[in-house]
Design a protein around this nucleic acid. Structure first.
Length: 256
DNA sequence: GTTGAGCGTT
């Protein structure tokens, strides 16, 4: 029972994946198994680890055999204090193979055909009510990236095209002299996490609305204006020598 | 020893 995630996925044919977030970094699958297993039949528990360090990322995946048990576990374990941290249990949105998951269950072709006219609603009894989930921590930490686990992906992204510089230095913004626009740009601090397959319903945005607002051509024409106008690159520093109170020289360094 | 948004492996 302690070999979760060591032999790969056992069988995700009809298993419901639950995503457990906000778990302690010390929490292991073995610790979550008894907690979730008491509410239903847990098929497997997996906690993604870091490739470099191998530490837990802070979230785990619990696969249930039945959705009803999974839902019960969510309602029971969601917001529960585990290892000193309030864990958040919810249905997984994406599958291990980048497959879309519906209510924690991987969408299969067979099921899609079945939706033609079969079960009206698998669970029409209750709806996802945001009772105390809304009380989840609003204060999102400013530091989304601690070590840079997305660094690998961003690294490649930068190589392709960094038209939209996510990290805009304040100095660079002053150079352009357009702070107002920056504010708007700062608003859309989307992580730009383009998944392989996004939900169609969510992508049903108006075509007229441009998802990627390009900056005004005027800004592009004169992205930066140097007061000197000489065209000196900003990389060059204007203050070469940081003279100190007693500018010591190698020639007269004999005395302190 | 630390961190704290999110979506997964043999």
């Amino acid at each position: 029972m302690s070999h979760f995630g060591r032999s790969g996925p056992p069988d995700i044919r009809d298993t419901f994946s639950l995503l457990v977030l906000n778990i302690s970094f010390r929490t292991t699958a073995d610790d979550l198994f008894p907690l979730f297993d008491r509410y239903g039949k847990v098929v497997d528990v997996f906690i993604p680890r870091d490739r470099r360090t191998g530490d837990s990322r802070g979230f785990a995946f619990v696969r249930y055999k039945y959705a009803e048990e999974a839902q019960k576990a969510i309602d029971r374990l969601d917001g529960r204090n585990v290892d000193g941290r309030n864990i958040m249990v919810q249905f997984a949105k994406y599958g291990p193979n980048a497959e879309p998951i519906r209510k924690g269950r991987i969408i299969e072709e067979a099921e899609k055909s079945r939706e033609r006219s079969r079960s009206r609603s698998p669970r029409p009894r209750h709806r996802d009510d945001n009772r105390d989930r809304e009380s989840r921590r609003q204060s999102r930490s400013r530091s989304r990236e601690r070590h840079g686990r997305d660094r690998d992906r961003d690294y490649h992204r930068h190589s392709r095209s960094r038209s939209q510089s996510q990290s805009l230095s304040p100095e660079y913004k002053d150079r352009r002299g357009g702070r107002d626009d920056d504010k708007h740009r700062s608003r859309s601090r989307s992580r730009s996490r383009s998944y392989h397959s996004a939900s169609p319903n969510r992508c049903s945005a108006s075509p007229s609305k441009r998802p990627t607002p390009h900056r005004s051509p005027a800004d592009n024409g004169s992205p930066e204006k140097q007061t000197n106008g000489k065209g000196s690159p900003p990389s060059h520093s204007a203050s070469p020598v940081p003279h100190r109170a007693g500018s010591r020289s190698p020639a007269s360094d004999g005395k302190e």
